[in-house]
């Protein structure tokens, strides 16, 4: 009985073995010879006005079929000054360096269209496109149509998007200095000295100060003009500066746009809408590098995220970068 089972099992194993070893004929796949295209978006994070949207547009046709004559991008909203399509195709060499190969004339932008006319006899190219986000696109969606033409008369196109352009503003590296440019206006996204602050008293949202007091940790601080005077020692506010700004201290929220560090964190429009100011106060002492604060102006018109890029105890300075979102 047992021998019978062994025989059947052996037979089955042999069948499996022969099937498994069956060799399949391999044929090299044949490349298409007609004009083809492909596109990828390289830039990451929210699309902020003034920054760029970066793409790579690749196009190719058969080696003996013909050559590429032109490449073009059309944006649904014309890009701001500085928008261009590369006239050089890049490849990465053995050392990891991107080496350019010129394939055509520098791009020409007419309205929403940016075009590169090829001057080299080439059947393949990958061109980078840098779209500088214009003010007109704020809060809107942008789409792109990439297209290429070949000497064979073929035309191909590739649609990208839509991409939502953020409503928020951004200002980098505002230097606050104690007893000088110490008034921060979220409404104006600017820092003022005492004389300038006096002229814009109603727009002063925060006051910067540095104090080295033995026994306590005060150091670099931001406080609303309406904060307890205890947190504004030695400060005489400009007449009319009385905003009670909401202030919520945070640490480690290293927004990539503001911090320009390796962390892939982005503050986006939705964060401003959802932030809860229930636990907010109106001051923050001992602000450190890579700390920050969510802020809401007294009139509720703006919300902002202030990131501390740098502090200098010797110079009594603090460098901040700000993202601001209009709530009303």
């Amino acid at each position: 009985m047992q021998r019978k089972y062994y025989s059947i099992t052996l037979l089955l194993l042999l069948v499996v073995f022969f099937n498994g070893c069956k060799e399949e004929e391999y044929a090299l796949p044949e490349a298409k010879t007609q004009l083809q295209n492909e596109c990828i978006k390289r830039s990451l994070g929210p699309n902020v006005v003034g920054l760029d949207l970066e793409f790579v547009y690749a196009m190719a046709l058969g080696y003996n079929a013909g050559k590429i004559t032109s490449a073009q991008v059309e944006a649904s909203i014309p890009g701001a000054s500085g928008t261009y399509l590369e006239h050089r195709s890049f490849y990465t060499n053995g050392s990891g360096v991107d080496v350019p190969v010129t394939v055509g004339n520098p791009s020409v932008t007419t309205g929403a269209k940016t075009e590169v006319v090829f001057t080299k006899d080439t059947c393949a190219a990958a061109l980078r496109y840098f779209y500088i986000i214009p003010e007109e696109a704020r809060g809107k969606e942008v789409t792109f149509t990439f297209s290429a033409k070949a000497s064979t008369g073929e035309t191909v196109s590739y649609k990208m998007g839509p991409y939502q352009i953020a409503k928020m503003d951004m200002k980098l590296d505002l230097v606050l200095s104690d007893n000088n440019k110490m008034y921060l206006s979220v409404a104006d996204m600017a820092v003022y000295n005492a004389a300038e602050a006096a002229a814009n008293a109603d727009k002063i949202d925060l006051v910067y100060l540095y104090r080295s007091i033995s026994g306590i940790t005060f150091a670099h601080a931001l406080a609303a003009p309406a904060a307890n005077p205890e947190y504004l020692p030695g400060i005489t506010l400009p007449a009319g500066a009385a905003n009670n700004t909401k202030y919520l201290k945070v640490y480690g929220l290293r927004d990539r746009h503001l911090a320009r560090l390796q962390y892939g964190i982005y503050v986006d429009d939705v964060d401003f809408e959802k932030i809860d100011f229930t636990n907010a106060t109106n001051y923050g002492l001992n602000m450190k590098v890579e700390s920050g604060a969510w802020v809401e102006t007294a009139d509720g018109k703006y919300r902002a995220y202030i990131f501390v890029n740098k502090v200098d105890n010797g110079k009594k300075e603090m460098t901040v970068s700000v993202k601001r979102y209009a709530m009303k």
Binding site: T217, A221, Y231, N279, T281, L285, N286
Partner: peptide, 9 residues
């Protein structure tokens, strides 16, 4: 706690 700590939160 540190001077200036907001005891409410």
């Amino acid at each position: 706690v540190f001077y200036g700590t907001d005891l409410k939160s």
